[in-house]
Design a protein around this nucleic acid. Structure first.
Lengths: 132, 132
DNA sequence: TTTTTACTTTAAAATCGTTCTAAACTACTT
DNA sequence: AAGTAGTTTAGAACGATTTTAAAGTAAAAA
């Protein structure tokens, strides 16, 4: 399926701007990035786009499940093109995230889900310190 | 050990402001809170404190291990007086966090820690959706 | 005790990421 | 071709957090 179809399937109009972003993000190589990272990449590809549009697109893409947003207490929002359930290492010093594939972690015992709720995803974060 | 001693042990001068905050936070009842939450509580206890001081104190307390900061992609920093390793449910709609004690979760298989790093803590986040 | 020193607090300004606004634009439908 | 609903934009606004620089305070030295 090409990117135009992906956008249409997600219920999004394939505008020029969304196609530029889709072509950067949805090429099969997984990565973590911020809105600003993406703007730099758009600029250096000879295009340009308002930061408002970039945030707008990223939110739409996330709400449609085309990308994910990582749970992390960094001041800047971090997005992830890997939409499979998976986990992360976090280098606490630099803030860098490294993917951990789902099969690498096995949760053996889970607590009871509170009444009235359902489990909508489990994220494991393994914080890393540099070895002394 | 009283709060003044706790501050001294942590290498922090027990100033009037730090004592006010320590008396609110370090009383053994675990809770999640933002800087603004804490300021409201200080105000309603008849004291007052600059928001800069509050942020300052919370960062120092966190760096000394007196409190923790929760990993969460909320726009506002959330702190936690529970400094034991533990986990959280996250109500994705409201942003509310609920503690999960460490024994409630059993990680059966963990990935290999990258070379040059050591594991400095594992956090599990179980995201919750309201049941339909 | 007084003096000195380093650390702390403060209000206000600055900064930074993100969202809002409202006008111009564009994809799609008729 | 015309209509309409959704989209993009620059710039303003916003909210959380940090910085600034001056005044205050705790602890150490004299």
């Amino acid at each position: 399926m090409n990117n135009k179809e992906k956008l249409r399937n997600a219920g999004l109009r394939p505008t020029k701007q969304r196609m530029i972003i889709a072509n950067i993000l949805l090429n099969g190589v997984n990565r973590h990035f911020t809105a600003e990272n993406l703007q730099n990449e758009i600029n250096s590809s000879g295009n340009s786009m308002s930061i408002a549009t970039i945030y707008n697109c990223l939110k739409k893409f996330r709400n449609c499940g085309l990308i994910k947003q990582v749970e992390s207490s960094k001041e800047t929002a971090i997005f992830d093109t890997n939409i499979n359930q998976h986990h992360h290492f976090l280098d606490e010093e630099t803030g860098e995230l490294i993917d951990i594939e789902n099969e690498e972690i096995n949760l053996f015992k889970l607590p009871e889900i509170p009444k009235g709720y359902m489990n909508s995803g489990v994220e494991v974060l393994i914080k890393l310190k540099r070895q002394i």
